[in-house]
Amino acid sequence: MALKHKITVFKWVSILEGISFLVLLLIAMPLKYILDMPAMVKHVGMAHGVLFVAYFVGALLLIKPMNWGLKQIAIIFGCSFIPFGPFYVEKKYL
């Protein structure tokens, strides 16, 4: 797979992972704990989990071709745990 294609795929995964994280935190969790509607957490949580793993795999595959240093790698992986972090990665490092 060409580097440009890998970057494009990772950009999309990063954006979708960030959106799924925000939906989980800002919509699904309040529905579960405030309105006692846990179903959305199950579905959004599963989607977020799959995208989270895809984000990590995508980042691992880009370490060498993008010549990311240890600091950049730590920031990229750390941003996956922070709301809006994947959007930062997509804009700053891709």
Score class of each variant (00 low, 15 high):
65 P>H: 05
36 D>K: 11
20 S>R: 06
55 Y>N: 00
54 A>G: 06
2 A>R: 12
38 P>N: 08
49 G>T: 06
46 M>K: 04
17 E>C: 14
92 K>A: 13
36 D>G: 05
68 W>M: 02
49 G>K: 00
19 I>E: 05
14 S>C: 12
46 M>C: 05
81 F>G: 02
81 F>I: 08
33 Y>P: 00
76 I>Q: 07
64 K>V: 04
50 V>W: 11
64 K>R: 15
23 V>F: 12
87 F>A: 10
12 W>V: 14
33 Y>V: 06
81 F>V: 10
12 W>I: 14
63 I>M: 12
84 F>W: 11
9 V>H: 00
82 I>A: 05
52 F>Q: 04
12 W>K: 10
60 L>S: 10
46 M>G: 05
53 V>T: 09
44 V>T: 03
51 L>C: 12
29 M>R: 13
72 Q>T: 15
50 V>F: 13
72 Q>Y: 00
32 K>T: 07
48 H>D: 06
76 I>F: 04
76 I>E: 03
87 F>D: 08
42 K>V: 13
78 G>Q: 04
92 K>H: 12
80 S>Y: 09
55 Y>W: 03
58 G>W: 01
89 V>E: 08
29 M>K: 15
33 Y>D: 06
60 L>D: 07
32 K>Y: 00
28 A>C: 09
19 I>W: 05
53 V>Y: 07
1 M>A: 14
89 V>M: 03
45 G>V: 07
37 M>N: 13
14 S>K: 10
78 G>M: 12
87 F>Y: 11
68 W>L: 00
50 V>N: 04
46 M>R: 11
71 K>M: 03
69 G>S: 08
45 G>A: 08
61 L>S: 11
9 V>M: 10
15 I>D: 07
90 E>P: 00
65 P>I: 02
33 Y>L: 01
81 F>A: 13
30 P>G: 10
43 H>F: 12
23 V>D: 05
38 P>G: 07
64 K>E: 10
6 K>A: 15
91 K>N: 11
22 L>Y: 07
69 G>F: 01
33 Y>R: 08
59 A>Y: 02
75 I>D: 04
88 Y>H: 09
9 V>E: 01
8 T>A: 15
17 E>R: 05
30 P>H: 09
34 I>V: 14
18 G>W: 01
71 K>E: 07
79 C>G: 08
15 I>A: 12
82 I>L: 13
76 I>S: 00
5 H>T: 15
9 V>G: 08
94 L>W: 02
9 V>F: 13
70 L>E: 13
68 W>D: 07
23 V>E: 03
53 V>E: 03
42 K>N: 14
88 Y>N: 05
83 P>H: 00
60 L>C: 15
21 F>Q: 09
72 Q>H: 07
66 M>Y: 02
92 K>E: 15
3 L>A: 08
18 G>R: 02
78 G>R: 06
89 V>N: 06
33 Y>H: 14
71 K>S: 11
